[in-house]
């Protein structure tokens, strides 16, 4: 099967269980090259598990992952040259300064030292971290950690970026910076796959969307194909089946007098 032309990421029959709980159940998914692809679903839908398997961080029970035609699990080194990852947990080598972290990441990736220095400086500047480049990452705010992690993910110029909840818990200014960097990445032909449950954001940024629920794919396609004339939020509720609670009970809410 040729994934090289128009498909950036192809997941085939991807499956993962933790004990008796099925996190991802036979997921098939194709991400078009050059797209801004949103993976949406309610909490616990299997988004993070899917992204971890797609990036080689979690071994699937079954199925395959190809990035630009390269099997992530059979040819790890070649596949990982093509991808950049921003995980949800933001576990970083945080006893290094921001600049040191980027230098370390670049050298881990096998980039020449001058290239690492040059790209690190540019990324720190664009992401507004140049004044904090000498501060230990452990002392960064959440938004700063997210930005430096994004810089680390972008440093080697990956073709495909996997971002797990990149806009979670960051301020509007940082979100705007992140958005602008990601848009530049897709303008240059890169692909972005990101998970989120903030529908407005996905609607604003993405041209393609996949909706997962309980580890299964319930819809995939261009934004318009998935929305079918509704807002993404409404389409999401329709697809996932989360009817609004009628509000039976809970009459005691707001009744505390002391």
């Amino acid at each position: 099967m040729d994934h090289g032309g128009t498909t950036a990421v192809a997941l085939r029959g991807l499956r993962k269980s933790f004990g008796a709980t099925t996190a991802v159940a036979a997921l098939d998914l194709e991400v078009p090259a050059g797209s801004f692809f949103g993976l949406v679903g309610p909490n616990g839908a299997g988004k993070t598990t899917t992204l971890r398997m797609a990036t080689g961080l979690l071994r699937p029970d079954a199925g395959s992952v190809h990035v630009e035609g390269v099997d992530v699990w059979a040819d790890a080194v070649r596949a990982r040259r093509r991808i950049g990852v921003l995980p949800e947990e933001l576990d970083l080598f945080d006893r290094l300064t921001g600049r040191q972290l980027l230098t370390y990441t670049g050298l881990l990736r096998g980039l020449p030292a001058p290239t690492v220095a040059d790209r690190s400086g540019q990324l720190l500047s664009v992401l507004g971290l140049d004044t904090a480049a000498g501060t230990l990452v452990v002392d960064y705010s959440h938004g700063m950690r997210k930005k430096v992690a994004l810089a680390a993910a972008l440093l080697h110029g990956p073709r495909v970026l996997f971002l797990d909840e990149p806009f979670e818990a960051i301020d509007p200014m940082s979100a705007r910076t992140l958005r602008s960097v990601l848009e530049r990445h897709t303008r240059h032909g890169g692909t972005v796959v990101f998970s989120s449950h903030v529908m407005e954001l996905v609607e604003r940024l993405c041209d393609h969307v996949a909706v997962v629920n309980q580890g299964r794919l319930v819809a995939i396609g261009s934004l318009d194909e998935v929305r079918r004339g509704q807002s993404l939020d409404e389409a999401f509720v329709r697809l996932v089946g989360g009817a609004e609670h009628a509000g039976g009970g809970l009459e005691w809410l707001g009744s505390s007098s002391d």
Binding site: G56, A76, D91, T105, G110
Partner: peptide, 14 residues
Amino acid sequence: TDRGAVWLLEVSGP
């Protein structure tokens, strides 16, 4: 002491 940060070693081509 690297804790969860070792994912970076893994994704950067082990």
